[in-house]
Simulated assay, not measured.
Amino acid sequence: MLKYSLRRLLGMIPMLLLISIVVFTLAKLMPGDSFSGEIDPTNTDPQYIADMREKLGYNDPVYVQYFRWISDFVQGDFGKSTRYKMPVSDVIGERIPNTIFLGAITLLLTYIFAFIMGMYAGRKPYTIGDHIIGGVNYLGLSIPSFVAAVFCIYFFSFQLNIFPSNGSVDITITDGTFEYWLSKIHHVILPALMLGLLSTASYTQFLRNDIIESSRKDFVRTARAKGTKESKIYNVHILRNSIIPLVTFLGFDIVSIISGAIITETIFTYPGIGQLFFDSVNNNDYPVLMTLTMMFSFLTLFGNLIADILYGVVDPRIRLE
Rank of each mutant, 00 (worst) to 15 (best):
M1I: 08
Y4W: 14
S5L: 14
R7I: 15
R8V: 06
P14V: 13
M15D: 13
V22I: 11
V22E: 09
T25S: 15
L26M: 14
M30Q: 12
M30K: 15
P31S: 10
P31F: 09
S36T: 07
S36R: 08
G37E: 14
D40Q: 13
P41S: 06
T42N: 15
T44F: 12
Y63N: 13
Q65S: 01
R68P: 03
W69L: 13
I70L: 10
Q75R: 12
Q75L: 07
K80F: 15
T82E: 14
S89Q: 14
I96S: 01
I96H: 11
T99A: 02
A104W: 02
I112A: 12
I112T: 12
F113P: 06
A114N: 08
A114R: 08
A121F: 09
T127S: 10
D130N: 13
I143M: 06
S145R: 01
S145V: 08
S145Q: 05
A148R: 01
A148F: 11
Y154M: 15
Y154F: 14
F155V: 14
F158D: 10
Q159P: 07
L160M: 12
P164Q: 03
N166D: 05
N166H: 03
G167K: 04
S168Q: 01
V169N: 02
I173W: 03
D175I: 07
T177Y: 02
F178V: 10
E179C: 01
W181Q: 07
W181T: 04
W181G: 05
S183R: 08
H186A: 06
H187Q: 09
A192R: 05
A192F: 06
T204S: 15
L207T: 06
N209D: 13
I211N: 15
S215N: 14
R216S: 13
K217V: 08
F219E: 05
V220W: 05
R221E: 14
A223F: 02
K226W: 05
S231R: 10
K232M: 12
I238W: 06
R240T: 10
N241Q: 14
I243R: 14
L246S: 13
I257C: 03
G260P: 02
I263V: 12
E265M: 00
I267F: 04
F268D: 00
P271K: 00
G274D: 11
D285M: 04
V288S: 00
M290T: 12
T291R: 04
T291G: 04
T291K: 03
M295D: 04
F296I: 09
F296Q: 07
S297E: 05
F298G: 02
T300M: 14
L301N: 03
L301G: 02
F302H: 02
F302Q: 02
F302P: 00
L305K: 01
I309S: 01
Y311L: 04
Y311P: 00
V314E: 00
D315S: 01
E321N: 13
